[in-house]
Design a protein around this nucleic acid. Structure first.
Lengths: 340, 340
DNA sequence: GGCTGGCACTCGGTAGCATCGAGTGCCAGG
DNA sequence: CCTGGCACTCGATGCTACCGAGTGCCAGCC
């Protein structure tokens, strides 16, 4: 463990570097850290901190820069969470007061809100309605070989899946008439409404091969894990990534990551699963994010874990501010989604 | 109009500049343009071209760069459309052969495909099902003060709108029971199925105030113009924007535009409405896109105009390649969406 | 033992300067 | 009207000198 003074020095270096993106020298630390010792003493301590891996030096005659370990110590020792800036608090409040309508739209807007609050990229992974029960199930025929299943879940989510009837084996080979679609729709409604959505929902046979085949396709479509549903990832404020790094190549790589919804979901889930709230650099597990930090927080609906929000920015991120933003938004979002 | 040789010189400058991003000198033009005159002659012509606004000079002793007008002349005189590169043609073919499932997913993937083909950002604006008829309308209650209307349209689109019953005036003030939701659902289905979706769909009164109020809310929700539905905009390959410009500020601005779905829709629509296929620089009507070019193409479903695809890249874009990509993808997409 | 003032040293950044060369404009002659 | 020739421009490149922020270390002090 670091002694009091070294911790203060480290903290000062991190804060200064976050602010200026310039290597921090011992003189600056003396001015800003509140430790009342000479710069020579600070230098000695900084040398030790470098030896222990908290700081590094871009070149001999420059100041120090925090390492990943340095940032980690910093966030682990932040102490009491900061409050949001007043104007930001107002923005969050008015956002959630005005929020209404489609949940997807709201989550998308929330990702943008996170971006606005932090000047980094905001990410929202939507609720996985795994535990929801079905309120309505309906099959609607479009052509003789295409149909859609639409299900409304108890949490208000609407799921839609296309069905290609040519996939349904020989009993559907010739297409299917409206009456059988109707029969299948009624049959599914009768047996699935009230059931928990899952990968294996038993539906009894009707005796009619074509109707049963259609039901089977519909059930299969409905059972597809919603976590794989790419509509459930929302990223906002990506343009801010361009301001966060000066190496254009880094910008490209980070944007490339954010484009891949599946990767983003996995990333957030991994971090949450490891019990982290903040992942710095290699802690994210993704090489292109070596210069990034990620802050995550789960949110709940009616107390049940529902999804994750996060902020992705440079490792030299304003952690107190970003942590506050993520915490507040996660809290307000949970509230908002639970009250409906 | 430009004489033969000046046109050839201009073409050579544009092509070279697109390739290298370096100002092009008279000597290079002689080598690459096929005009068999001396560099001095080319210089004279280039001076004229500059005077007429097709070229500009970053500074006195440098080569020439195409102006917006120069690019415009270039694309207007491209002649026969180029074919896609072989490998790209294969990629398009296999993409559409494998495409299946949800239309939203497919459009999203299409935007990514466009990005891959051109190395710029791909944009797809989804079908506006304004002309579609309703195949199914359903109201599902969630709580005593919230419900959703779900409509399936003849083109396979599923529309979902949340309804907040507290907005429904005093007849709904106390919430509403399941039986009335059911009544409203049946009533709407009876009168709207088969109707063209529009902003004003008449629904007769039932005589029950609460049911009528709910119906009114549902109809209003359904009538909302689908063009405003932000789910209908898909942008892919944004990370490539980072490679397309060297000024990081430009990257930020362009990404900022692409983030605003409403702006993107408007942008594409404006360009299409002006009858353009290519919009260069200020032709886009957006100041931050001064260094960009946009290629658009509408696509059809069953011969009916359905939406727009496009590619946004730097003004020094590989126009032949990008035009070919947009044309082919638009064609194949139309085909694919019509066959279902 | 730990802190401090002092000092020599390092090395990236900047300014000044000469040089280079790609490119131009122009002109006189074919 | 085209061309070879030529003087000129001006960004890019490379060199040198220098500055200064910052370091490491040491001898001395509390």
């Amino acid at each position: 463990m670091l002694d009091e003074r070294k911790a203060a020095i480290l903290r000062a270096v991190v804060e200064e570097y976050i602010d200026t993106a310039q290597p921090v020298g011992s003189a600056h630390v003396v001015k800003s850290s509140g430790v009342h010792v000479s710069s020579a003493t600070v230098r000695n301590d900084m040398a030790t901190l470098e030896l222990e891996g908290y700081l590094s030096q871009p070149h001999t005659s420059a100041g120090r820069i925090p390492t990943e370990k340095g940032y980690r110590f910093f966030v682990d020792n932040l102490g009491a969470p900061t409050a949001l800036r007043g104007s930001d608090a107002v923005q969050v409040r008015s956002f959630f007061d005005q929020a209404h309508g489609e949940i997807e739209q709201m989550l998308q807007d929330t990702s943008r809100l996170l971006g606005d609050l932090t000047s980094y990229a905001g990410v929202v992974v939507g609720a996985q309605p795994a535990e929801a029960t079905m309120r309505s199930v309906q099959v609607v025929g479009l052509t003789s070989t295409a149909a859609v299943v639409v299900a409304v879940l108890s949490n208000g989510a609407v799921e839609k899946h296309s069905i290609d009837l040519t996939q349904g084996g020989k009993s559907l080979a010739g297409g299917i008439g409206d009456e059988r679609v109707g029969a299948a729709s009624a049959h599914l409604a009768a047996h699935l409404i009230g059931a928990v959505r899952s990968g294996s929902m038993p539906v009894p046979k009707t005796g009619d091969a074509a109707t049963d085949a259609l039901c089977a396709l519909a059930v299969k479509a409905l059972g597809t894990d919603a976590a794989d549903d790419p509509d459930q990832v929302f990223v906002g404020g990506t343009s801010r990534i361009a301001s966060a790094f000066d190496a254009i190549e880094t910008v490209r790589e980070v944007l490339g990551i954010l484009e891949q919804q599946y990767v983003v979901v996995t990333l957030l889930r991994d971090v949450i699963d490891r019990g982290l709230q903040v992942a710095i650099g290699t802690e994210t597990g993704m090489a292109p994010l070596a210069d990034c930090a990620l802050i995550v927080s789960p949110y709940q609906i009616e107390g049940e874990p529902a999804g994750t929000i996060g902020v992705l920015g440079p490792a030299r991120m304003d952690y107190p501010q970003a942590l506050a933003a993520v915490a507040v938004v996660s809290h307000r979002l949970s509230q908002r989604l639970s009250e409906a």
